[in-house]
Design a protein around this nucleic acid. Structure first.
Lengths: 110, 110
DNA sequence: GATTCATTCAACCATATGGTTGAATGAATT
DNA sequence: AATTCATTCAACCATATGGTTGAATGAATC
């Protein structure tokens, strides 16, 4: 999946990870989300945009306020990549194992 | 862990993820790693530096060539964060569940 | 010792990122 | 209708990022 880039870049920022964890508690308005942060509302708004583009957050406009809710699905992509990595890793270990087995068996040949 | 930032930023780049997967096959020299890429050797060298700083790769200088090997440990940090996220998520689901249980039980009160 | 080979360092470039402030939009309140 | 409130848009700024090219380093080879 191509989106993995966006998802990883999004969660690479600590403020955005904090926002995500905060949002697991439940949806919140932009101002609420921004409250604990030592940065402008605008900065938080930008972070939310990044999370939204990555699909990690969904925005529901309710009149003048925006309700932001976390969306867990894109994190699956990260898990999937980690699993792919581990799959390759264990396959490689298999190969190494076989390599050593062959060494044992064929010791006298070479 | 603070390094999580560096690890996530490192794997957010697709070339670097490719390098990592390549290195699971086994250690390689810089030129070997660079070979499949359509970018300068220098660019790859920089990517390796980023991976090295993030701890995802280890460099062993062997004379004039550098043997680069993958180091899986830092990816644990990513897994840990995902687990933390999921923990919070399920705790929140618990809360929601209890909330609805209370609604059921106390329906007549409110 | 001169040359070649593997790699990094240094400088540069364009674009992205994370932040700011001030103005604009648009809904709610008076 | 005027004002206030929630949010984004726009412009700007400093720094980071991903790439380039050319020079420097330092080991191997002739």
């Amino acid at each position: 999946m191509d989106n993995l880039n966006a998802v990883l870049a999004a969660i690479a920022d600590p403020s955005r990870r904090e926002i995500i964890l905060r949002l697991v508690e439940g949806p919140a308005r932009v101002t609420e989300i921004a409250e604990p942060f030592d940065m402008s509302l605008n900065a938080v708004s930008k972070h939310l945009k990044v999370l939204e583009v990555a699909g990690l957050v969904h925005r529901e406009k309710q009149g003048r306020e925006h309700l932001i809710a976390v969306r867990p699905e894109p994190l699956r992509l990260v898990k999937t990549w980690l699993h792919e990595y581990e799959k390759f890793w264990s396959e490689h270990l298999d190969k190494v194992e076989k390599h050593f087995k062959n060494k044992k068996k064929g010791r006298k040949k070479l």
